[in-house]
């Protein structure tokens, strides 16, 4: 089961070996996090702690339900960044969800 999921991701990587980001927003989210960290607004370790929490929450659901992921890592990444920026008082949660 998770072998099939891994096989699919391996195959996708072979077909598209040169792209580290699957969409432009992933690249920008990554660069924003790195830039803010380099500028001292938070340490990369602080960010990683939030990322591990987001990934871990998703892992527990997958382990419970027996489902596989399909490469949604940067969704966890973005949520971790949003939470950290809210905690730091830099940007309120929901910055991007105003109608």
């Amino acid at each position: 089961m998770s072998s099939a999921a891994l096989n699919k991701l391996i195959e996708a990587a072979r077909l598209d070996a040169d792209h580290v980001f699957s969409a432009p927003w992933e690249a920008r989210a990554f660069a924003i996090a790195l830039k803010l960290s380099e500028a001292g607004h938070f340490s990369w370790d602080e960010f990683r702690d939030r990322l591990i929490a987001e990934v871990g929450a998703s892992d527990r659901i997958r382990a419970r339900d027996g489902t596989s992921d399909h490469g949604e890592y940067y969704e966890h990444f973005l949520r971790a960044l949003e939470r950290l920026l809210e905690e730091k008082g830099i940007a309120p949660l929901g910055t991007g969800s105003q109608g």
């Binding site: 980001f21 969409a23 432009p24 927003w25 992933e26 690249a27 920008r28 989210a29 990554f30 660069a31 924003i32 790195l34 830039k35 803010l36 500028a39 607004h41 940067y74 969704e75 973005l78 960044l81 949003e82 920026l85 830099i90 940007a91 910055t95 991007g96 969800s97 105003q98």
Partner: peptide, 28 residues
């Protein structure tokens, strides 16, 4: 959606002077 959230986040951070879109381009 994540694309819209990142766009709004980048706009807010740019407005606050915390990031510069050109610097983000360079990291990417």
């Amino acid at each position: 959606g994540p694309a819209a959230r990142v766009k709004a986040l980048e706009a807010l951070l740019t407005e606050k002077g915390l990031v510069d879109p050109a610097a983000i381009d360079a990291i990417v």
